[in-house]
C-alpha cells in the first residue's frame, strides 16, 4: 500500500556530526549552506539538552516542512 508523502528525515549513523549528515543527505549543496539549512530545519535539537548535539535516536529532517495551506 502506497503511503502519502511525508517530510523526509534521517537518523545519525554512529559518529556523524552536522557536517557529515549534510554531506550524506544534501550532497549537491555547498557544504556550509547545507549545514545551515539542516540546522534551520532541526531547531528542536537546539531546544533541549545537550543543545545542538545529535543523539542516536534523534529525528533529523532533511528538508523543510511540507508546504501547507496556512
Amino acid at each position: 500500500m502506497e503511503l502519502s508523502r511525508a517530510r523526509s528525515f534521517t537518523t545519525a549513523r554512529p559518529g556523524e556530526e552536522w557536517a557529515d549528515i549534510a554531506r550524506r543527505t544534501l550532497a549537491d549543496q555547498d557544504p556550509g549552506q547545507a549545514v545551515e539549512a539542516l540546522q534551520s530545519w532541526n531547531l528542536h535539537l537546539f531546544l533541549r539538552q545537550p543543545r545542538g548535539r545529535i543523539l542516536g535516536c534523534d529525528v533529523i529532517f532533511t528538508e523543510p516542512p511540507l508546504t501547507d495551506a496556512g
Partner: peptide, 13 residues
Amino acid sequence: IRYGDGSSDSVTL
C-alpha cells in the same frame, strides 16, 4: 517558525 518557501513548523521552549 515560517520558512522561506512558505512552509511552517512548531518548536517548544
